[in-house]
Design a binder for these strands. Structure first.
Length: 567
RNA sequence: AGGGGCGUCGCCAAGCGGUAAGGCAUCGGACUUUGGAUCCGACACUCGGAGGUUCGAAUCCUCCCGCCCCUGCCA
């Protein structure tokens, strides 16, 4: 088989992987059926984009890129009752954020309304479409069932001239909403229900976000989509599996109208992710029902949510690349997304220290009032990021979880009589545990080894554990938001039928008493850090200079937790 | 039940008649001033099942089983 680079000689990025869609394009190019590749991403502006859309966006844009073609962004805005400009704007922003550009190729199906109307007239003239007077309920009745054929509408064979006149008057506004529809004349006995005289136009007096009140009839998706594709010269129209049954109709429309382009619709499986919901309706419900704080709630599977959570476009693109494209319905483990996230963040996130649940440590042998600045490397994965200085003093905070009065086996962290290293600082040994009346540990008395400055000693003795810390008087109080999956069940609603029953009550945990190192003062919203030994965190837009707020993007891999779980 | 699809390792996924890629996860081990990262190594005699064709089948044929989608004037 010929490689695309060889067949079209254009500037192309090397195809990263093989899949049935790219193979098919290879063939189309090799056979001369197409000389270029034009794809499109066609969102309906009735909601925000989610991670499932990201799969389609990455596919369409990268395929076009690889083959030296182009990808259009086209809004499928044929249903004015559900669509809004706000969604258009946010969808554009999300796609740009993901890293894709459509240049001049921004389109709206609504821009084609006049031409679409013309094609409809042509269909009527050819006796391929007719105006029907059956109401919605009657039409359902006439449609038949999955196993029995439908019946023809009594209006099916009305004269062409009559349909032409009626359709013209539909447009003119002579009839109330829902009174008439334009239907394709195909086959009421077809085993494919989509071919049983599908509706092409309906009457709907609704204000359209772009065409305003110019129209009171609006074309249906199945009619609009193939024509929009053809008008734009799309070569490969990639969509999800549920449209497979619609392909015969897609082809019928293009075969029965005078247009010199016939794109190929190719279907692939949509992305499934456990512990979340991806349907637009459910996402809208979550927002309007206040189960989340908004479309960009960090627990939402929306691109806006992932962005606020601290996910990077590169990670999402790598994920989309990794899951591949096929026709088998599949559900990808969240771990794979997190793997690509960590892989990206590990390279780029500056390391800082933050204590989420502080436990005071007093160094009894540290000179009273002394403060020194210790040097801390910003990112061991990226030497060029340099280093910074952090204040160290005799009163510190460490993570409550890093101390155990009675250490389990395999414990590397602090416990009575044991020595650990404070990252970038000194070795300390725990001498005494202070508790309050309730028996709660309130403070640790430790001694430090002055010889261990920087983290090593002249005698080169080993300490297994290294802890992160923060100087008590220098640290900045902060809020940290820890997120778990929005749903407690892999398939929300599977048991009770109502997905809201499976909302995870612990999906958001707020740690109000965290302390972060002073270098984090003034970190801008969106900036991402690795809190040493804990995970990746980003500054939430709710942050103020007085009270920084961090979202946990994803935790670090935790071998210790895994070991614990096992025993 | 009619139509359209799909079934290869726990999760994705290559494979297109010549004797099962890769990633994630998992499990060992090395290294480590993050129990992070990195590095080594292990991980499908078998491709939903049963027959058949063939020197040879995950790939071809037949039957069976399972799962998904379709009866909006939504997309």
């Amino acid at each position: 088989m010929e490689r695309p680079e060889e067949s079209n000689g254009g500037e192309t990025a090397a195809p990263v992987r093989r899949d049935f869609i790219r193979s098919r394009i290879d063939e189309d190019l090799a056979s001369g059926r197409h000389r270029q590749v034009v794809t499109r991403f066609p969102p309906e502006p009735n909601g925000y984009l989610h991670i499932g859309h990201a799969k389609a966006i990455c596919l369409n844009f990268t395929v076009a890129q690889e083959f030296g073609g182009r990808c259009h962004l086209r809004f499928d805005d044929t249903n004015p009752t559900k669509e809004e400009q706000e969604f258009v704007d946010n969808i554009e922003a999300d796609i740009r954020w993901l890293g894709f550009e459509w240049g001049d190729h921004l389109y709206f199906a609504s821009d084609y309304f006049e031409r679409l109307y013309g094609f409809a007239v042509e269909l009527i003239e050819k006796d391929k479409a007719y105006v029907d007077e059956l109401d919605a309920e009657q039409m359902r009745e006439y449609r038949g069932t999955l196993t029995s054929p439908g019946r023809e509408s009594p209006y099916r064979n009305r004269p062409v001239a009559e349909s032409l006149d009626l359709f013209r008057r539909m447009r003119a506004g002579d009839f109330p909403d829902g009174a008439l529809v334009l239907r394709a004349k195909i086959d009421m006995a077809s085993p494919n229900i989509n071919l049983r005289d599908p509706v092409l136009y309906r009457i709907r007096r609704a204000h359209h976000h772009r065409t305003g009140d110019d129209w009171c009839i609006y074309p249906m998706y199945d009619y609009t989509h193939p024509l929009s594709d053809a008008i734009e010269g799309i070569t490969h129209s990639l969509c999800t599996l549920e449209f497979e049954d619609h392909r015969p109709l897609y082809d019928w429309v293009l075969d029965n109208v005078t247009i010199d382009c016939h794109p190929q619709q190719i279907e692939f499986a949509r992305l499934g992710l456990p512990y979340t919901v991806m349907s637009k309706r459910k996402l809208i419900d979550l927002v309007t029902g206040r189960h989340v704080r908004g479309w960009d709630d960090p627990r939402m599977p929306t691109l806006a949510g992932y962005r606020r959570r601290g996910y990077t476009p590169a990670a999402i693109r790598a994920f989309a690349e990794a899951i591949g494209v096929a026709k088998a319905n599949s559900e990808v483990e969240v771990g794979l997304l997190e793997h690509h996230l960590r892989e990206d963040l590990n390279q780029h996130a500056p390391r800082v220290m933050a204590v989420l649940a502080p436990l005071k440590v007093v160094l009894t042998n540290y000179p009273a009032g002394k403060v020194e600045e210790v040097e801390a490397i910003n990112n061991p994965e990226k030497e060029s990021d340099g280093s910074r200085r952090i204040p160290f003093s005799g009163e510190l905070y460490i993570e409550r979880e890093d101390f155990a009065e009675e250490p389990p086996k395999g414990w590397f962290r602090l416990s009575p009589g044991k020595e650990v290293r404070l990252k970038h600082g000194y070795y300390v040994r725990c001498d005494e545990v202070i508790k309050d009346a309730a028996g709660e540990i309130t403070e640790l008395r430790c001694t430090y080894d002055p010889e261990s400055a920087g983290g090593t000693t002249p005698d080169r003795r080993k300490v297994k554990g290294t802890l992160h810390w923060v100087s008590a008087s220098h640290a900045i109080p902060a809020e940290v938001r820890i997120y778990e999956s929005l749903f407690a069940e892999a398939h929300p609603g599977e048991r009770t039928g109502d997905y809201l029953d499976d909302l995870n009550p612990d999906s958001l945990r707020v740690l109000a008493d965290a302390r972060v190192e002073p270098s984090l003062a003034g970190a801008g919203a969106g900036s991402v850090f690795q809190f040493l030994r804990q995970g990746y965190f980003c500054v939430d837009p709710d942050s103020t200079p007085e009270r920084p707020i961090f979202n946990r993007t994803v935790g670090l891999k935790d071998t210790w937790a895994k070991l614990q779980k096992r025993s």
